[in-house]
Amino acid sequence: MMSLTEVKLPDIVRKQFFYKVKAYLSVFSSLLVVQVISLLLSTNGSRMMGTSHNGFSIDINYYTGDISIVLTLIWSFITAIIITTKAYRNDDFVFVSNRVSSHLSNIVFLFFTSVIGGVTAVLAGQSFKVVMHLFLKDGYVMGTAIPFHELILSLIVSVMYVFLLAALGYFVGMLVQLYRWFSVLLPTIVIGYMIIGARVGGEPILIVEIFKFYAQETVLLLFLIKIILTSCLLFFISSILTNKLEVRQ
């Protein structure tokens, strides 16, 4: 008799995570593309001011690398949706897996991509400033250098935002996998609400409140708690949703 192997869940999750890092390499190459595009878009400058007086004219251009963070958030959302699709879910079950290990390894993987995405987005923003220093020879260039502890803070914060978006994407993806018509319904509701909300009350209140809740938190600890709790909740609901699905078709 061949001996039966007892396996431990954390062990399988670890193996699946390493497999996923290798297997989903395209996730990281798409991040690279996203950030290159964001840098190109940033070179246009975000604001311009000009004034002239007595034959003098002053033009002020603002440049910012923040676009890379915005695009990274979108990238993270889409990446999370993609790994909930059937093809990716079935990939897990080629080797040893059950649903719990599949979810856990996905979450670890998404956290890993969030760290990479968040860190590179912030650093891309910083390197953008350096690059612009070199290119903008015409005129006087003022740059804001951020102190080291603020850099660390912005790294942590952007990683958490990217992770939050990944959790949201995972949730939306699973919802769509379960009920196909959500793929039509969700965008309709969100975009529809934005349009109607903007017309009736000036601003869509719900979205403003959500933005305030997550984006205007000034206490780091509270911010972390908010993000982590929300992400956990989203992942938890996603895993409950999949109880209705077969493991592999």
Binding site: L4, T5, E6, V7, L9, I12, K22, A23, Y24, L25, A87, N90, D91, F93, V94, V96, S97, N98, V100, S101
Partner: peptide, 17 residues
């Protein structure tokens, strides 16, 4: 997970990245 670790299922739908 126990059954998954002790069985292997081979068919033509298997897909590798």
């Amino acid at each position: 997970l126990f059954v998954s670790a002790n069985r292997i299922y081979i068919d033509d739908q298997m897909n590798f990245p």
